[in-house]
């Protein structure tokens, strides 16, 4: 992303896109693709599905952006689309009985395995520390996927740019107290499973 687009507000980028400048949409993709992924991952607990949903989110936005009136912030709108599409995907997966999970036993040669090894690689750390961290993060990934959706969703969203409880509650359609309680339960469950 260039310095110019980095300094532009979402509103400015949207206006430029509406005026027929496609780079403005691509700047929005640069800015929000990672966040869309994290939301989808929080709902689905599966990287491959989360990537598919992230792409669908921006295709949906590309179609709808010319009519976006800006009643809410772009980020809120995008988060909501991501949550809805991820949930649809989750239901679809369940209805087909093909809940796909990234297997920790997958060989490093396949696509998911390479991706996981890339994610878990930590070049800044000493080899022993890195190995220990990788092992821990691999375990976190496994346990996060195994966590009930009710708990995984708010926990991942909370770790998405330190999203506020209010915003998580709005996105997931829950009350603030419920979110507070679920995040606590998610953490406690993860502590138990990871034995930390």
């Amino acid at each position: 992303m260039s310095n110019l687009t980095l300094n532009m507000s979402d509103g400015e980028l949207i206006r430029r896109f509406k005026e027929g400048e496609p780079w403005a949409f691509e700047a929005l993709v640069d800015k929000y693709a990672g966040k869309a992924f994290q939301i989808a991952y929080g709902v689905l607990g599966n990287r491959q599905d989360a990537e598919e949903v992230s792409q669908d989110v921006f295709i949906r936005i590309h179609k709808a952006l010319p009519n976006f009136r800006g009643d809410s912030e772009f980020s809120t709108w995008m988060y909501r689309i991501a949550v809805n599409l991820a949930r649809n995907k989750y239901r679809w997966n369940r209805s087909r009985g093909s809940e796909k999970n990234l297997s920790m036993d997958a060989t490093l040669g396949d696509q998911d395995g390479s991706e996981m090894s890339r994610i878990l690689a930590s070049p800044e750390k000493a080899p022993d520390d890195a190995a220990a961290n990788n092992e821990f993060e691999a375990e976190v990934m496994t346990q996060l996927q195994a966590l009930p959706d009710l708990y995984r969703e708010p926990l991942v969203l909370r770790n998405l740019d330190d999203m506020s409880y209010d915003r998580i509650a709005t996105l997931l359609g829950c009350r603030l107290g419920t979110i507070k309680s679920r995040i606590a339960r998610a953490r406690e469950e993860m502590r138990k499973r990871l034995r930390v």
């Binding site: 976190v140 996060l144 930390v196």
Partner: peptide, 26 residues
């Protein structure tokens, strides 16, 4: 909590070429 949060952030990171793939598709 801090350890779990840090690990959760890390495992939920998108691959670096995701944005490019989305742009190509769009």
């Amino acid at each position: 909590f801090r350890r779990i949060d840090a690990a959760t952030r890390r495992v939920a990171q998108a691959s670096p070429d995701l944005a490019e793939r989305i742009k190509e598709r769009c």
